[in-house]
Design a protein around this nucleic acid. Sequence first.
DNA 1: CAGTATCCGATGCGATACTG
DNA 2: CAGTATCGCATCGGATACTG
Lengths: 235, 235
Amino acid sequence: MTDWGYKQFCPVAMASEVLGTRWTILVIRELLCGSHHFNDLRRGLPHISPALLSKRLRELEELGVVSRQRDPENGNPFYRLTDAGEELHPVVMAIGCWGQRWLEAQLSMKNLDPSLLMWDMRRNLDPDPLPSRKVTIQILYHDVTPGQAKWWLVIDKAGADGIVDLCRKDPGHDVDLYVASDLRSMTAIWMGLMTVAEAIDSGKLQLTGALQLKASMQSWLGLSTFASEPKQVDT
Amino acid sequence: MTDWGYKQFCPVAMASEVLGTRWTILVIRELLCGSHHFNDLRRGLPHISPALLSKRLRELEELGVVSRQRDPENGNPFYRLTDAGEELHPVVMAIGCWGQRWLEAQLSMKNLDPSLLMWDMRRNLDPDPLPSRKVTIQILYHDVTPGQAKWWLVIDKAGADGIVDLCRKDPGHDVDLYVASDLRSMTAIWMGLMTVAEAIDSGKLQLTGALQLKASMQSWLGLSTFASEPKQVDT
DNA sequence: CAGTATCCGATGCGATACTG
DNA sequence: CAGTATCGCATCGGATACTG
């Protein structure tokens, strides 16, 4: 092809030139999910190099998909999707739904990653079913290297900015609910491949603590956006 | 990243690993549009190398998106989308619609290509408004290198297999309609950026021949699938 | 926290030629 | 018609370290 590009006037080709480069779609997914700061994005894209993330953001900005602004408070930069960027939502959803329906679950289960899972859980956790007081939940993955095994979610509806906090170190509060599982099972629950009840019944998931929290876990634990998509392949 | 892959269990990431490789989406677009044979695909993807096309087809086959079969008649191989492949239709449409809405028209107009345009026109031409007898239409691009300037569309509703034939050499029949234009204008019409009437009024398009064919051109000339998508950027 | 700078390696991919 | 074979290069992007 000599120069870059498909050399086609077809809109699919034009758009693919832009969206088809490595990491681009995932950067947009992160922005759609509400990450705004450089290091938030990095958290959602653990294996991207900062140089490449920076490059992608600049490309998307030049394209008019992303707008870089500064927080008037502290002068920190942050990224927002423009209207053109927001309208990529159907694209990302279509890709994700197709992936959930047709890509083998096993494949997904090879890419387990506790910090990514926790970061997603923090994002989608639904505080509504939880009591109004501050709630602390400890998650323990007993099959994960010590440094990544223990996590705390602190939900405080009266909290300052974000309602849900994710900690890797003991925040010090009394723990209301202890969750213990293996990483694989927890990810399967997150992806809608298994319910909380099934996991408990089969001994894959142990809950200790406040009864109300145990009973309502399936509802406060927000699932992956694509969890409801019916799968077509099983292995 | 060392190994290939995003190492994320998110379905968007899983699917992007597959769909994000160069040319893949366009191969699928071609299959969705009804190309089935290797050289048909090459026609719709003029700048892909045969080696890469072959590779992509094998990858997609292994993925279960494409199925390779043989024509029982002549033993010729052909490619079909599986159910999983057909379900990529929403993905391709979402990408194309976004491209049409948000990517600058000018950008598209830099990738003019007469044979690609004619190939698309042949595919989307709507024989319904045309008379039942055999109709021959000659298209002349007066700003294009001689070898690519003259084309014939032969529409025969009683025709053998395909109804619409595209020829690069004079098929010999009497011509019912002569169409003359520049490549840029014709492409703009095809993409829905201009109507036939506007092009005639501004002198960009000349029609000579059967009145009925002239009057109905906007309807028998099928437009790009994305032509109806409202554009948001103008330049 | 929000990036840059630099280096370098793998490999994806394009070009061309050739075959059953 | 339907691909395979081979070659070689550009470049994409990964790793790491460093800065304002």
